[in-house]
Nucleic acid binder design. Sequence first.
DNA 1: CTGAAAGCGCTAACAA
DNA 2: TTGTTAGCGCTTTCAG
Lengths: 328, 328
Amino acid sequence: MKRATIGDVAAVAGVSVATVSRVLNGGAVKEATAAKVWAAVDRLDYSPNALTKSIFAGRSSTIGVVIDDLTSPFYLGLMRGIDEVADANDSLVMFASTFRHAGSGAAQIRTMNEQRVRGLIVTTVEATDDRTRRMAAGGTPCVVVARSVQDPPPRLHSVALDNRAAGRLMAEHLISCGRRSVGVITSGGRPSQHGRTEGLRQGLAEAGLELPGDAVTSVDDNEQVSAAVGALLEHRTSVDAIVCLTGRRTVAVHSALTSRGLAIPDDIGFLTMDDFAWAPALGVTVIGQPSHRMGQKAAELIVENPGEAVQLTFEPELIARTSCGESG
Amino acid sequence: MKRATIGDVAAVAGVSVATVSRVLNGGAVKEATAAKVWAAVDRLDYSPNALTKSIFAGRSSTIGVVIDDLTSPFYLGLMRGIDEVADANDSLVMFASTFRHAGSGAAQIRTMNEQRVRGLIVTTVEATDDRTRRMAAGGTPCVVVARSVQDPPPRLHSVALDNRAAGRLMAEHLISCGRRSVGVITSGGRPSQHGRTEGLRQGLAEAGLELPGDAVTSVDDNEQVSAAVGALLEHRTSVDAIVCLTGRRTVAVHSALTSRGLAIPDDIGFLTMDDFAWAPALGVTVIGQPSHRMGQKAAELIVENPGEAVQLTFEPELIARTSCGESG
DNA sequence: CTGAAAGCGCTAACAA
DNA sequence: TTGTTAGCGCTTTCAG
């Protein structure tokens, strides 16, 4: 029942533990000795203890990821990207989500630090900044996703979308589809959403269109969406397009529209963030983020561990379908 | 740059390492001493090494999860459930996916074993059976998801849907909607799909309806779906409903239908596995699995670590919407 | 090429 | 209440 240790293997093989260690990790050993060791390994079903190993390395080979909502298509793509390069580098991914806790993930980050993860990828809010900074200072490369860091210390990187560009892309497309008055749904106070709003506002302004403050509504969860959309539509009857600034709310906003009997795009235009599996079928036009590549890059930053802070910005992409009407 | 160790803390606080260990883990220490220690911890930004700790416990406090496709709504729900109870038990989730590799996850399971995970949850195919059995034999509780294990050794549990019941539920609903000839899309050779097919066949048979072998088509990926659906429809012109036996293919099958100009449910009925966010909006009737509860249960089996093997079966639930037409 | 011995950072008796 | 002393399972000098 008790697990075999390297000592047991050594005993069975009739060699020293040092020798066993060497054949396991590819040191110089005589063919014949190695064979004896492997036989013992087999017989005892020996599995080296990676935990003990990492004591010497000072850290584990695991990449930590703290995400606040796996449900969103963006994070799913991100995870796949991360997992992919982790796998290619014989790393595992240690995952913790925070969507239940208001605490914003400080606890998770602490735990990851205690686990001596090789690096950390975080998507949670600024409250965690301090912890992340200290981890980076302690030598663990950290990557912050979907948010840039002001004045980053050496090992604190970031991977983010050019949110203003995303906003502008939205404005351009809406305008080219003849929309004149947009209503916006944002979610919580994430900085990325500010960028998008600003980009949108600017893009609209360049075409002489306004985005008044009361055309922007923030919702905290899916339950609020229907009421928020309703209020927006009633308050501003001129609105001819609804823009959803976060992929997390796409379903809810879309349902809010259709369940009011509004036809998309005839009665109202609809534009949202993040491509998703059903979008082609539904004809929903989106601004796509390269979430998969972003995940890969984040993980690569961990693996390559550059000395300076690197801030990567990715370009959004308009994936035009039919939900805003005919373009041009 | 070098991390502080418990020894450093002891030195700064002017006490022994044992004392530091005690205040960190809640032993009996004098108020004043504890204060000194905490001060030192603070000053050095000390973070205890969880890896070293688990040497003594013999295993880490991490729950390992090997999943083959995070993209599927079922696995997402499962993950949430797992993460939830892991979190409640101060565990982290170590995640590895296998969807790139043909290798079916043997490597991932080995790594998890080396990481001395507290328990393992696997969703990959039978090829991994041996490894899982050995892990269980070695004392690590393992839970196999969506598949039952024949003749399970002590610590090898399973959490699965009653697939025959799911099939029967499908049959019942289709019949009550007046469908007489169904076409089936399955994916790969997963045993769960056999159960569903059998249940469906039985349920149909009880109503005097047949499910001939050529009405069942298996596809390996989304690219094959359109052709497969086309072939099925052309070969069996009587088909008035398409059943998709895996949530993983829902989008592709649905698109295959609509892109052929078929209206759901008027031209053809559509029924699939696993509820998903857009299903209400699309009116897609599904057989739901309690994926979230299944994840929770799987994680609880790890945490509670019962001596015998336990096999949990969950009941599927029909979530009737409009895609099969009017029922009754 | 191989073994003995000294740790890695921490916990757990056992004394004091 | 505290400190001393063994280890945990492994890697890594340093001799042989």
